[in-house]
């Protein structure tokens, strides 16, 4: 479907791939677009590889099956690029965004991928900003930059709304910095 922008996020349960997709969907709706975001799990526990899907469109989205051959594949957990199933899936997409300290050229070579590769050292940002390897926040900043049709401020606003009860001031600021850094540092 050409009029639907599709994203697959690959992560492990507990890393926030589901929340990242959901927040992007919130931002899309706030920006006046139709959206859909849902997870697909393997084993029901932390650490098991999982996917979450995101669709954004100007018209109502009625399809309810998983996304294949998306516009963008996002890999939140670096190690997943070595999992054969994940590898196969991400190579079917038009563009890839990987959380890694390798360069786009190295990733392209590693995956033998013909499309555009974006990288972001989200683990470094996460460990620096909140000392935990929860990389979905900087990755969201990067995704918004790559998609290009939703202003970053809308995402930040949705994030604040969702988490203001859960996070204290410092943690919220750290997350905002992480989103900003994701936006600035993706390349």
């Amino acid at each position: 479907m050409k009029d639907i922008y599709e994203v697959v996020l690959h992560g492990r349960a507990g890393q926030g791939a589901k929340t990242a997709a959901a927040l992007m969907a919130h931002a899309a709706l706030a920006n006046g677009m139709y959206m859909q975001a849902f997870p697909e799990y393997g084993a029901e526990r932390e650490g098991a590889p999982m996917r979450s899907y995101l669709r954004i469109s100007k018209r109502e989205i009625r399809i309810h099956s998983g996304v294949h051959n998306p516009n963008l594949s996002v890999v939140i957990d670096t190690g997943l690029i070595y999992e054969p199933e994940v590898r196969h899936e991400i190579c079917g997409s038009k563009e890839i965004l990987v959380n890694t300290n390798m360069s786009p050229k190295e990733i392209k070579k590693e995956l033998n991928f013909k499309g555009k590769v974006y990288v972001l050292d989200a683990t470094k940002i996460a460990l620096e900003e909140f000392e935990k390897n929860i990389t979905n926040t900087p990755m969201m900043g990067a995704m918004i930059k790559i998609y290009g049709k939703i202003p970053l401020d809308i995402l930040k606003k949705e994030f604040k709304q969702k988490f203001e009860r859960k996070f204290n001031n410092d943690l919220m600021k750290a997350n905002m910095r992480a989103i900003n850094r994701g936006y600035e540092e993706v390349h």
Partner: peptide, 8 residues
């Protein structure tokens, strides 16, 4: 094998 899950 679950070794690939490591960060540290």
């Amino acid at each position: 094998k679950t070794g690939s899950w490591r960060t540290f």
